[in-house]
């Protein structure tokens, strides 16, 4: 009996993964998708936030803490998008490798230039992202830099497969360049939209369309009847091409505005996996373009 107890304790203390694959944990689905492009079958990817969940408001679930405990590399969006739960997950993970400053901690936003960084901010403006718009995953230009940064991080954590990662990065880059040409020829220039949340600003800047107003009066605050009334006035005056929302935020409101004004409403996937068609990052952007046209 004692022997069994002893071996049980030994197992408890020294459980280590039996394979040498890099255990990568991504906070958001798109980060996991890019990592998959670079790491293919040589890394194990766990995604903490599911496509149906709002990354602004997630809770630090114990299963997320456990995933972080097992991680060799933690990759996250940054720009304070995950500030409500990620610091807690990292601290509670009891995992020294993924602490800030360690090579297992990868803030993907360090590779991009944020837009809309407010010069001054307080919370009377709503839950504004003070370091700039964190939803840069809709920006093909930024994703290229992120993928390069990720390739370096993977190579650093798993030097044996560095060439494999670099080769995949080159493939990813070629495909992205190809796709960029397709996307640039899409007739979005000059189009006008009303959106729910400030999600598509990077894409608007890169592809020359306009987002005239937001159904959300302030970030994170649902619209009042008065604000909806104001939006109806705006839509009637400015005649946008569509009212856009995502599957996790604003679907109902966009639908109601569309009914009132006759302007079509479009529901876009906000991340990989939000719709069946948006199965990886490329198809996510494809779907967004398709919806915006």
């Amino acid at each position: 009996m004692k022997k069994y107890l002893f071996s049980f304790l030994a197992v408890l203390l020294f459980v280590t993964p039996s394979f040498a694959k890099v255990n990568a944990v991504a906070t958001l689905p798109w980060i996991g998708s890019i990592a998959k492009e670079i790491g293919k079958d040589r890394i194990e990817i766990t995604t903490l936030i599911k496509a149906g969940q709002d990354p602004h408001f997630a809770e630090a679930k114990p299963s997320m803490i456990l995933a972080a405990r097992k991680a060799d590399l933690l990759m996250y969006n940054g720009l304070e998008l995950e500030i409500g739960y990620l610091p807690r997950i990292i601290e509670s993970s009891n995992n020294p490798n993924i602490q800030p400053g360690k090579k297992g901690n990868l803030d993907c936003s360090q590779f991009i230039t944020p837009i809309e960084k407010p010069s001054s901010v307080d919370r009377s403006m709503g839950d504004v992202h003070p370091l700039g718009n964190p939803h840069y995953h809709f920006s093909p230009k930024n994703i290229l830099s992120v993928a390069e940064g990720m390739t370096n991080a993977l190579s650093e954590n798993d030097a044996g497969n560095a060439d494999f990662y670099r080769k995949n990065m080159q493939l990813f880059k070629d495909r992205l360049m190809e796709k960029q040409k397709q996307w640039s020829s899409r007739p979005l220039k000059g189009k006008k939209y009303i959106a729910y949340h400030k999600l598509f600003e990077y894409l608007a800047n890169e592809y020359g369309f306009w987002i005239l107003g937001y159904i959300e009066p302030k970030p994170g605050i649902p619209p009042s009847a008065g604000h909806i009334q104001e939006m109806i006035g705006l839509i009637e005056k400015a005649k946008p091409d569509a009212v856009i929302a995502t599957y996790i935020a604003g679907k109902k409101e966009a639908g109601a505005l569309s009914l009132k004004t006759g302007v079509k409403s479009v529901v876009l996937p906000q991340d990989v996996g939000a719709t069946e068609a948006a199965q990886d990052w490329f198809s996510l952007i494809d779907e967004v373009f398709k919806g915006l046209e």
Binding site: Y76, I83, L86, I90, P100, Q110, F111, S145
Partner: peptide, 15 residues
């Protein structure tokens, strides 16, 4: 440029 960007504040613990 990517290497030099590594030293930017992460924003994980606030700005």
């Amino acid at each position: 440029t990517i290497e030099s960007a590594q030293s930017k504040a992460t924003g994980l613990f606030g700005s």
